[in-house]
Design a binder for these strands. Structure first.
Length: 505
RNA sequence: AGGCCCGUAGCCUAGAUUGGAUUAAGGCGUCAGCUUGCGGAGCUGGAGAUCGGGAGUUCAAGUCUCUCCGGGCCUGCCA
């Protein structure tokens, strides 16, 4: 994440995929660290600092706006407009950029600001159901010794070389193997490192090609489970390097760069006992209608690509709040006797479920064209439908006088003999297989679709096979048992998808 | 120009590992129904697809190969 603006729905997709994958991996017994890479240096950070220090923007938002949103919408977007007319600010940006590359007062100041933005972003992430184990700062990579180590290694392997002539003279480069493509600059002629350089260090660190280069500390005293990288000496002896597998989740636009990184890493990983994998997913764009409601000029385009710098994006918190308003009304209508807190809490959970399912139900290689109207739907293949189904199943179990008894199911063929019952049972029995396949294929979508399908089958069962009104006690017991098992299955699946379940909605 | 990705009813999307019982599935929309029945955020049924075009491999192709067409992305001393 770039700690300079609020999370937009593109980040939300990344977050949902990553979080669901982490849940899937943990559920299947894998030991993993969920890391969030923080780009706390470079231009986008410099822009915020220039805004606050030299362009007269307040350090605090005037109203109770979240700090990440304030920094992004009120400063980052505006300062990029100001550069057009106020050239002295462009010079200031150059100055700030240089200061960020060394130990300086400005760097210290920037750290405070970016941490503040980061904390606001992590609040949003938590609201969406995602938590991280580790934050790694780009700035720590720049100042770490890891860079020198990997730099020497690459020099020895002839992966990089110092360009002596031509346009790239004075820069360290990686020769490209692609046609019509300039070589990749890894160290600029002024000695600073580029984005890919930092990514190589990070990747090498992940799978132990270089030794541990960071120390770790608790990032936020409110949450001592979340660690962050630091170059200061600390008491924490945890090491995060040397993983047998690293999965880097970045969108498809970075595929080429990731491929180069992987190729470089393979040169140092002769035994191939370590794997570095780029898990690619397509971007989220805005539908014409949604872009227009945000006041973005669409011209004759059908799909609008988001752009943080131009302010052309849709903020996660705001999106969730819009969904929540709709869900709130609907929930209130159906639960008129409940108190305000209950309704709000319920609406929040349903909204998150709705948002998560909406962004998880497509496969990773499909571009999502986000449409606000579509996301407000509560019926059909949606998160609310899943929760509704869960509530129905729960309701039956709560109203039942007796709990289902497995020992009473003597003749399952007689007691659960209807076509839709058998279909439901058959599909429920696939749960282990589906989870296993989803993990192997890194496919949260498969879990999402499976869950929906199961709910679909259950609702069909619900309609055709009355449970509590069934007169045959054996059949009733068998059906009750089926409902119970179904709800258990759903709990597992909801946990994987990051959907909280509710007894009533 | 080169590289990567996508193309399945009006729209959106599944169809994995391993080509095979699928009469190509689901959602939105549309048309017709279902409530003195465990929650109608639901269910049932209808209409709507020669799976972008073509060729090939095969007993068998939405799925594999080639080719063409359409769309997107990448190809920065930005990140």
């Amino acid at each position: 994440m770039n700690p300079n603006k609020a999370l937009h729905i593109g980040h939300a997709r990344n977050l949902f995929i990553g979080d669901t994958l982490a849940r899937m991996l943990r559920f299947t017994g894998h030991d993993l660290t969920v890391m969030n890479y923080i780009d706390d240096s470079g231009l986008q950070v410099a822009d915020i600092i220039v805004g606050m220090k030299y362009a007269g923007f307040n350090e605090k938002p005037e109203n109770d706006m979240k700090f990440d949103e304030y920094a992004g919408d009120k400063i980052y977007v505006k300062i990029n407009e100001l550069y057009e007319t106020r050239k002295e600010l462009v010079e200031k940006r150059e100055y700030v950029l240089k200061q960020l590359e060394k130990k300086s007062e400005i760097r210290q100041y920037a750290k405070e600001i970016t941490n503040k933005i980061l904390k606001a972003q992590l609040e949003t992430a938590k609201r969406l159901g995602a938590e991280y184990d580790l934050l790694v700062f780009e700035s720590d990579i720049i100042f770490s010794d890891g860079w020198k180590e990997i730099f020497e290694k690459m020099k020895d392997e002839n992966i990089i070389k110092l360009e002596k002539e031509g346009k790239l003279s004075g820069a360290w480069i990686i020769k490209t193997t692609f046609k019509n493509e300039t070589d990749k600059v890894i160290i600029r002629s002024d000695g600073t490192s580029t984005y890919i350089a930092k990514d190589i260090v990070l990747a090498a660190w992940k799978i132990g090609i270089i030794d541990e280069i960071f120390n770790y500390e608790v990032f936020d005293s409110q949450n001592n489970k979340l660690l962050s990288s630091t170059l200061n000496k600390t008491d924490n002896k945890t090491k995060f390097t040397n993983n047998s597998k690293a999965i880097t989740l970045i969108d498809a636009r970075q595929s080429r760069l990731q491929k180069i990184i992987k190729e470089i890493l393979n040169r140092f990983n002769e035994n191939e006992d370590r794997t570095y994998e780029h898990l690619s997913y397509e971007i989220v764009s805005l539908s014409k209608g949604t872009a227009e409601t945000l006041g973005i000029k669409t011209e004759d385009k059908k799909i609008i690509q988001m752009s943080g710098r131009k302010g052309m994006y849709i903020n996660v918190d705001n999106t969730l709040n819009i969904i929540k308003n709709k869900v709130y009304e609907e929930t209130k209508l159906r639960n008129s006797k409940e108190n305000e807190d209950w309704i709000r809490n319920t609406a929040e959970i349903i909204s998150v479920a709705s948002f998560r399912y909406e962004l998880l139900k497509n496969d990773l290689d499909k571009i999502i064209i986000f449409d606000l109207e579509d996301s407000l739907r509560l019926d059909g293949e949606t998160g609310p439908y899943l929760l509704y189904t869960f509530a129905r199943a729960t309701s039956i179990l709560e109203k039942a006088k007796d709990q289902p008894k497995i020992e009473f199911i003597e003749d399952i063929h007689r007691n659960l003999s209807l076509k839709h019952e058998i279909e439901l049972i058959k599909n429920m029995s696939k749960i282990d297989l589906i989870i296993e396949e989803s993990v192997i294929n890194m496919s949260p979508m498969r879990i999402a679709k499976f869950t929906y399908n199961l709910c679909n089958l259950f609702n069909s069962f619900y309609e055709k096979s009355p449970v509590l009104r069934e007169e045959d006690k054996d059949i009733m017991n068998a059906r009750l048992h089926l409902v119970n098992s179904f709800r258990d299955s759903l709990e597992i699946l909801f946990n994987l998808l990051g959907i909280e379940y509710l007894k009533r909605i």
